[in-house]
Design a protein around this nucleic acid. Sequence first.
DNA 1: GTTCTGACA
DNA 2: TGTCAGAA
Length: 143
Amino acid sequence: MISAHKNMLGIINKIQLSIGDLSDGIGVSQRQLRYWEEKGYIKPIADNEKGVRRYSFLMVGRCAQIKDFLDEGYTLTKAYEKTIEDEQKRKVFRNFIFNQGGNFTINVTDKEHSYGEIDLGAKCEGKELFGVVDKNGVRYELR
DNA sequence: GTTCTGACA
DNA sequence: TGTCAGAA
């Protein structure tokens, strides 16, 4: 029996959007989406029957980020490069989070703003390393 | 009604 | 990139 939680990953990967929904959803024209595909920046789901494009959760996120960089003034090429860089960095981050052993101890300090303190389970100079997020932002502390 | 490809201002 | 055509 697999937990419902673990099934979430599978469900998320089943989410597929039509080009119309993706276009309307992130404010990028269908013409642009097809052009980005032509440039090799995005790729619809492989098993697209009847020649109709379907986009995965990953692609939706990628398109949204490219769009944001575009709005910030970057050229399409730069927007794509920055997006891929971020994607790769996120993979490393997830790898770190999921492989650190699940030993983070988190203390919620403010439910309203999702502030809290995370015991990173690491020693530094004989003290415990904490990650803190509060109204002042994010920082590290040794206690 | 939606999506596809190709073509052109 | 927008937009239109003609077909699926």
